[in-house]
Amino acid sequence: MEKAIDKTGVKIGMWIFLYSEVILFGGLFVLYAAYFHAFPEDFALGGKELNRIFGTANTLVLLISSFTVAASITAIQQRRKGLAIGLLVFSLLCGLTFLINKYFEWGAKFHHDLYPNSDRLLDSDPGFNIFFGLYYTITGLHGLHVIIGMVLLAISLVLVAGNKISAERYAMLENSGLYWHLVDLIWIFVFPLFYLVL
């Protein structure tokens, strides 16, 4: 006998996990709000050090990859396996592009002597140091989520190729997609708070 699959239950489980992620990042945003309130001038100085072009480019990369992941689910539903694989490969390349951008961005900060415990940060006002502490914590944790999301998408890609994910059963792809969209959602808030408002 075929084992019955509770599609709704599978999705609810993923959503409950995503709620915990929302609260995790929510806590960090609370820290940001409280310290921004305490040190508005230092935060403004810190924000000037960040590159708007890098931030915007990474925002677009994540938005496009979210679209291709959503489209890959449509492709699976329509039994277009080749298209689904192509869209997932493209999404993974977007994730990689994001990480490469982040590498150069962090590299430029390191070059300007802006990294945790650097002489410049230790000698500066506490608010400036806290700004970069939050910057590295939040973008670092987000970057970790990008890597996890890419692993999930890569697993889905292999399963699609091996016909384990099909139009009848694609919960794994759907849940990996949800995780990827969450990564995008978090970046939607990180981007203006660090790169734009200051």
Binding site: A70, G177, L185, I188
Partner: peptide, 9 residues
Amino acid sequence: ATLVLLFFM
């Protein structure tokens, strides 16, 4: 975020 949640998610 609303667009992503309503439609992509």
